[in-house]
Design a protein around this nucleic acid. Sequence first.
DNA 1: TAATAGATAGACAAATCTGTCTAAATTTTA
DNA 2: TAAAATTTAGACAGATTTGTCTATCTATTA
Lengths: 187, 187
Amino acid sequence: MKSSNNVRENILSTAADLFYKQGYNSTGINQIIDEADIARGSLYNHFKSKNELFYAYLEEINERWFEQLYSYIKKIKHPKDRILGLFDFRIKRQTQSSFGGCPFIKANAEVPQDDKKAFEIIDKNKMKFRDYILELLNDITLQNDLFTKEELADTIYMLAEGATVTASFQKSKEMIGRAKDIVDRLI
Amino acid sequence: MKSSNNVRENILSTAADLFYKQGYNSTGINQIIDEADIARGSLYNHFKSKNELFYAYLEEINERWFEQLYSYIKKIKHPKDRILGLFDFRIKRQTQSSFGGCPFIKANAEVPQDDKKAFEIIDKNKMKFRDYILELLNDITLQNDLFTKEELADTIYMLAEGATVTASFQKSKEMIGRAKDIVDRLI
DNA sequence: TAATAGATAGACAAATCTGTCTAAATTTTA
DNA sequence: TAAAATTTAGACAGATTTGTCTATCTATTA
């Protein structure tokens, strides 16, 4: 009934919502076409299988994630506050999703061990985040020489990931806040 | 055909293996009873549903995980080396499982948002790990006063979690090794 | 030895899953 | 306006899912 002029986008955004909230294996094709309000044939016209839709989902949220990140950090002027802002960004996203966790870590858990393509997309996202942290670090002057900037980038990256995954089962932003305070002392 | 004198243990260990390797939603009751080589009725005699089996699985691996951890750390004499040994322990487990990731983080990703019981068991495991790190820290003298021992426990915990989840999609122990080197400098 | 409890194989229900296909309606392009 | 491409609803196949139930067999216990 809906006259959507971009069926593909409709499918992708509906699938993204469901894959994130329910997980890949708990989301059926039937639910996707029902909620997107499109025909079964249309889905298979744009995506040759549920698995291909999953890859498209991963690529899609990867792009959206960095769009949101850059937009958020752009508003912050002071270089050191930008680093700390990374944690506020994670807190914001986790709060908005009721602590549903990082979508890439969630997806990672459902990927079969031999699906190299999926692991590559996830790795691409995470290493791009780590490299972005390094970029931000290059704009500040360190107070001590305990760590190189490369090491600090790894540290901040791992703290952010460890904190976010913890927030997802504690259903609380507490640990991300602690990670932020720790980083505040490190840089 | 198998004359197992403890059917429950057989079911639980078989389910544990499959839940970890394939994930909860990708593992069917049929596969569990086939591989455990027991009757369908026996499974439902010991566990009233697949979900109850999942809870039992979480409790089971929680106990086994700390058994293995304590056994591993016990062999290390020097207090600081015990902290660093935590990372070697994670490396060992990840290498042995072909980088299948932390079973609790994997399970966490498949838990529906309203399943409080599952999140509680996962949290119990992770916070017990964090508290154990604090215990180990209480046996050493810090080289600097940048962080309290509580803060260091959080830091080491998050580094370990962030590193392990990264190892699981990179299929490499590299990041856990980096986390270890960083902690070596922090304590 | 007899009674009880547990394990077995397997049928069965009812729902769900992914993917294919048809035929008609609609939209886009030429 | 006509042709081509896309979308639609829905049937369908074939496999799979969890959970229940029956009837037989085996092992333990009293």
